[in-house]
Design a protein around this nucleic acid. Structure first.
Lengths: 334, 334
DNA sequence: CTGAAAGCGCTAACAA
DNA sequence: TTGTTAGCGCTTTCAG
């Protein structure tokens, strides 16, 4: 890589002249500017990012800590973050916590040494279970702002972007009840996550508001065979006439299991799930889905962080943005 | 963030003494080392990464350019890259080209200014279609090594990690033939990609080796309704008794479409697809899949790059690693 | 209009 | 054993 020094030498001017010329400073003579720019072009000069970062004490880089990149929702949020950030000239350093508290801490400390200007993150499962937040506070105390999304720590004072999980499932369940479904089950493979719990609570509330009904819940653990579990669950509880799924795979599998059991969807059983468009396409009939607008969540998170980075003076209060879900009706519900 | 300077001042020693003490230099007195380390600990001192990068002219950061983070295979490769790289203390800067040549170029140039030590990438669809490779060569000429995976540019002399796409589909098709399937169709939604073409060629070769058979191919475009397309395809061609899918969604949909058409899987129709374990779980019966070992691909790519970064002297010849696929038999084939 | 010099945080050769 | 100095590449103040 060419440096200012080399250009300066070749042009027989000083380094600062070259620097100023390239930055269109008024101070430098027209002719000099021309010569400098010409040579810079020729050598494909680009200012060294690292030197700039050191000088300006900011990297224009955001650290993103994602619990699981194979989770389609999280990947989509990452996509949203990246797209929004790159609009503002920011780069993304991605670390994957793999749902582990230690890896989360490690990654953050590894980056909290000048590598990044701030963090966007969603909590690892283990972090949520143990409810540890000290590492977040420590890093914020160092002057690095954090934005949390989806799985957030309510005890940490920082900007947040969340989904109306509770309401979304509550409304979905209410909807099914309005269509005269009497035995609505809830299936979740994300019971250990805060959002999983919220969703279950939304379901429970709707169910318990109807005096005749009782909650019927299937929880799937990571090591379980989700396909087998769901199939047996539906088989053992033939009265079920509707399923609300807290995650994408469970919704898809529920439809296919029902069909396998000889049921008609949605006539005999309605299914509704948290899922993206691509996944809702996998089944016949297509899955009615609760869309989380993952990209928007990512974009909002990036916005919040960049705002805070650029108006550090303003030290405003922390914001929480709720990105509303929407139900996209398809043929798996009546 | 605390700096060496501040520690030095507080301890009444010079900056270099502090630096050496923290780096366990033999030169410094035991007592001094103790005092320095104590204070550093107290203040949670961490060497500024940016300053180190500038000094050592390397960032310990890898630029990864991914065409599409929502593609499960690519996300998994990213996972593999991240995990392997972090073992060696490397960070990952992720850019998403969104299948666009311009974004790919832009991202690379944006990072090729000292931000990263090298690149790992898979070509954008547009890059493959236009067969443009100048930007890769330019960046390599600047001294930044590149490792390509999956969708590679054969005209560029760099390390590569690829999949045996051709053979995998060839073998899968041969397998179906051995089970007396007579009308084997091929369904692909990735026709424009190099790997998509390879897979089709593998299928064609196997089919054409059987004198009685003719290829029967369905190509799905991005804007198409893949569900509808596949359903009508199977309906219009009732003689089909086996499907080879070049991508994950097509395989899943093919099974569900067949069931919807009243066919028995695998008795009436076998289905085999390129897919991951999670996706193969979505259908009844489970989808027999060709696994690409995406994480391994990522790990290999990271290995290759880090090797090259650390043995720059050795300027060895470029390597191409082929990560063999394996077929995981399930109930969608006999 | 141009250049010298300081400084961002760090390491390392050299001096004391 | 400790300190001084130079330098990584850049911007910016101040002097010429």
């Amino acid at each position: 890589m060419v440096t200012l020094k080399q250009l300066a030498k070749e042009l027989n001017v000083s380094i600062s002249t070259v620097s100023k010329a390239l930055n269109n400073s008024e101070e430098i003579g027209e002719e000099t500017v021309r010569r400098v720019k010409e040579l810079a072009e020729l050598y494909n000069y680009k200012p060294n990012k690292v030197a700039l970062s050191l000088k300006q004490n900011k990297t224009k880089t955001i650290g993103v800590i994602i619990p699981d990149i194979l989770n389609h929702f999280l990947a989509k949020v990452l996509f949203g973050i990246e797209r929004e950030a790159s609009k503002y000239g920011y780069n993304i350093i991605t670390c994957i916590s793999n749902e582990s508290l230690d890896k989360e801490k490690e990654s953050m400390h590894f980056l909290a040494n000048g590598s990044v200007d701030g963090f966007i993150l969603s909590l690892a499962e283990e972090t949520q279970m143990k409810n540890e937040v000290e590492h977040f506070k420590k890093i914020m105390a160092q002057g690095l702002p954090i934005v949390m999304f989806d799985r957030v720590a309510h005890d940490v004072m920082c900007d947040k972007v969340i989904v109306d999980d509770f309401e979304a499932i509550y409304n979905a369940t209410k909807n099914l009840q309005a269509k005269k479904r009497k035995h609505i089950a809830f299936i979740s493979s994300i019971d250990s996550l805060s959002v999983g719990k919220l969703r279950e609570r939304g379901y429970n509330k709707a169910i318990l508001e109807q005096q005749t009904a009782k909650p019927l819940v299937l929880k799937i653990k990571k090591k379980d065979d989700n396909q087998k579990k769901i199939y047996s669950f539906l088989k053992k509880n033939p009265e079920i006439d509707a399923v609300v799924a807290a995650d994408s795979a469970s919704g898809v599998i529920a439809i296919n299991a029902a069909i396998k059991l000889g049921l008609k969807v949605p006539k005999d059983i309605s299914v509704i799930g948290f899922s993206s468009k691509a996944d809702s396409n996998l089944t016949f009939p297509r899955l009615t889905t609760i869309r989380q607008h993952a990209k928007e969540i990512g974009a909002n998170a990036a916005q919040l962080l960049i705002n805070r980075l650029q108006n550090k003076s303003l030290e405003e209060d922390v914001k929480t943005i709720i990105v509303k879900t929407s139900i996209v009706k398809s043929k798996s519900t009546v």
